[in-house]
Design a protein around this nucleic acid. Structure first.
Length: 415
DNA sequence: TCTGGGGTCCTAGGACCC
DNA sequence: TCTGGGGTCCTAGGACCC
């Protein structure tokens, strides 16, 4: 006897583009794209022409000459995304938000109050449509993996409920690329051994998959193909790393380019780390060259850091080391910094070991109490007067941002 | 036209320890 | 001189997700 299908996956349809059409009725029914230089999101009308997120704006215009580009109402994205997820939260506290426009929920404990999972899903869709004005697709199934697939099948603006008694019939006729974890590379590898559907994957021997994809991926895909997905709803997820990157076009690999860019990235990251008292021990940088090849370098420190200048200096040392190892590469196209090994909660003054506290009080050291105090002052001024009031912003540093910082914030996960 | 930005997880080799 | 196995951490790279 199979357990009941109580997992919901809800996904707002073409989210950013739908918000723009909601705010400006003249855009409804028309192919629009959010963004400019690069397409951040496309409406269904634009998708019909082949326009996709991440695509260069020029390419999108070639595919769809009547495409309208609209500016981003970032505040509204956050507000309306939050409102939609909150509707789900009215039914159960077991909500796991995946991104601004997507969430899982387990309604096993609230069916006595609100009806069957299918009825709850229907109500959620109606309420999001009526109260917020957006379409949201929902999948209902016994596992997260299958619920997610169901919501993809339901799009746009639909509901698919997968009965546990017929779930394998539903799953096995679908193409492998609908599975979680199967991207372009894995799809191509599977195609080489003739596996195109999830049903075919399910019947492929385990050793064959593990030889092709490695032990972990092979085992995982085999399990998912039989709808064995052990993952539970986790309502409070914290990020394990925090990073930032900036595509800078094509610039010479020189200090006048690198330093201000790294400082701005370090500022964005370190401010977040300090705000949540989550300094980190491992710093990773990535340099992408003009030919789009990229190299990473990382270092793990003895003590966690969250000071802007310290992070910027370490990042610069790592970038220098990369450039020294690649003397032929004279042009860079992207710089990235990421901090991982984050502490759960770190009170600098209370928990810093004694020997490090001594070091911290000496000026000019890495721990740098003086710099820590300076960061605190900057954080406070920004809390009162806004981000751009002070600090190492792009304007102050004379660098351009390809994507507005407000848009970047939408993708940040909770630390 | 060579394509943005924030994340997670896995692999594989090497250092080091027991 | 040669021999075995297990575990953890670090680093670099890559696939994948939204």
């Amino acid at each position: 006897m199979a357990t009941a299908a109580t997992i919901l996956h809800a996904d707002l349809d073409a989210f950013y583009a739908s918000v723009e059409q909601l705010l400006d009725p003249s855009l409804r029914g028309r192919p629009i794209a959010v963004g400019g230089g690069v397409v951040l999101a496309a409406s269904y009308e634009a998708k019909a022409f082949g326009v996709r997120g991440g695509m260069p704006g020029r390419h999108a215009r070639q595919l769809c000459p009547q495409l309208t580009f609209v500016g981003g109402h970032f505040k509204d994205y956050q507000r309306l995304g939050d409102a939609a997820i909150k509707v789900i939260g009215d039914f159960t506290p077991l909500v796991e938000r995946i991104s601004i426009d997507e969430a899982f929920a387990d309604v096993a404990g609230c069916t006595h109050l609100f009806g069957t999972p299918a009825e709850i899903a229907k109500t959620i869709r109606q309420r999001v449509r009526m109260e917020i004005g957006l379409g949201i697709s929902v999948g209902v199934a016994r596992t997260k993996h299958l619920a997610k697939i169901a919501s993809q099948v339901a799009k746009p603006d639909g509901l698919v409920v997968v009965d546990p008694d017929t779930e394998l019939e539903f799953l096995h006729r679908l193409p492998v690329e609908l599975m979680w974890g199967v991207g372009p590379v894995t799809k191509a590898q599977l195609a080489e051994i003739g596996v195109l559907t999830i049903g075919h994957l399910a019947k492929t021997p385990g050793w064959s998959l593990e030889r092709l994809l490695g032990p972990a991926a092979g085992e995982k895909l085999a399990a998912l193909a039989w709808n064995r997905d052990p993952r539970e709803i986790k309502s409070h997820r914290r990020a394990g790393s925090a990073g930032a990157q900036s595509a800078i076009g094509r610039k010479p690999a020189e200090e006048r380019v690198i330093r201000p860019t790294l400082l701005h990235l370090a500022d964005r990251i370190a401010t977040r780390l300090r705000a949540k008292s989550r300094p980190g021990r491992t710093v990773t940088v990535r340099v992408r060259f003009a030919d789009l090849s990229s190299v990473t370098r990382s270092v793990t420190l003895d003590a966690p850091i969250s000071a802007t200048m310290i992070l910027a200096e370490i990042a610069e040392e790592l970038v220098r080391a990369i450039l020294a190892d690649h003397p032929d590469q004279k042009t860079i196209s992207l710089l990235a910094i990421s901090v991982s090994h984050l502490e759960e909660h770190w009170d600098l003054e209370l928990e810093l070991p004694l020997e490090l506290q001594d070091e911290a009080r000496r000026p000019g050291t890495r721990i740098g109490m003086a710099r820590w105090a300076a960061d605190c002052a900057v954080d406070k001024i920004r809390d009162r007067f806004g981000w751009d009031a002070i600090g190492y912003g792009p304007a102050a540093l004379g660098i351009s941002r390809s994507v507005p910082d407000e848009f970047r914030k939408l993708a940040e996960k909770d630390l």
